[in-house]
């Protein structure tokens, strides 16, 4: 589903590559934790998969497409197959919960009746039934992240990228979010989650890819956050 081969990314403003010679393969339906300190290259990894950035060298395949060969105007089609969630939720403050989720469908031209049918379903899935008409600032952090996940998942993407989704949440709320991501993963969606949160990684026991200064230092199929031999 996601394959990086010999990928190096060097930002123009930095002497040290953000990623260096990274080769990773993530299968369809996997749940992968991307761990490492700040600046280890986790966000660059996600940005490369979204084709927000181009690798300096190496090649990347996402959903069967080699990104370097993907023409500019086909990038939107790629991104429709990828849902993305961030630490800071990125909801539109002037729109209700329902409108925030519907927005993701409207701007890709989905017909009105599809939007009307699908949005309540996904809000039910993330546990926000009954809060459709709330504004984002009336919700708790965990609820806001659920809205963001609903928005990322409403178009049923093949891949869900999550960049520190629990970074702003307290531990008990984080567990709820992880259960939700797990449920989404069970529908067959590949989930890649960058995180600092050792408790979550240790409790989930999923594949762990550790980055350190742009290098993959560990790739364990049922790993924990800290390195154990």
């Amino acid at each position: 589903m996601i394959r990086l081969r010999g990928v190096t990314k060097l930002y123009p403003s930095s002497a040290r590559p953000a990623l260096e010679d990274v080769t990773v393969e993530i299968e369809k339906g996997e749940f992968v934790f991307l761990v490492g300190q700040s600046g280890s290259g986790k966000s660059t990894f996600l940005r490369l998969v979204l084709k927000e950035e181009k690798p300096t060298t190496g090649s990347i395949w996402v959903a069967g497409k080699e990104l370097a060969r993907l023409s500019h105007w086909k990038v939107p089609a790629l991104r429709r197959q990828i849902g993305t969630v961030f630490q800071d939720f990125r909801l539109l403050p002037t729109k209700t919960v329902r409108e925030n989720v519907a927005f993701a469908l409207e701007v890709i031209g989905k017909p009105r009746h599809t939007v009307a049918k699908v949005v309540p379903e996904v809000l039910q899935l993330v546990g926000l039934a009954g809060k459709e008409e709330r504004m984002p600032d009336e919700l708790s952090g965990g609820e806001q992240q659920r809205v963001a996940i609903a928005r990322a998942f409403v178009n049923r993407p093949m891949i869900l990228l999550a960049d520190e989704p629990t970074g702003n949440l307290d531990p008990s709320t984080s567990i709820g979010i992880m259960r939700l991501l797990d449920r989404i993963n069970r529908t067959g969606t590949t989930v890649v989650m960058a995180t600092h949160d050792s408790h979550i990684v240790d409790s989930m026991r999923r594949r762990v890819i550790e980055l350190d200064n742009g290098h993959v230092t560990r790739d364990q199929s049922r790993g924990v956050y800290g390195y154990v031999n």
């Binding site: 990038v75 927005f103 890709i108």
Partner: peptide, 17 residues
């Protein structure tokens, strides 16, 4: 920029953005 950022992310076409 918030709106257009999200539009980019969810794969809205250039025409829509």
């Amino acid at each position: 920029r918030r709106e257009t950022g999200i539009m980019r992310l969810v794969g809205a076409s250039m025409l829509f953005i």
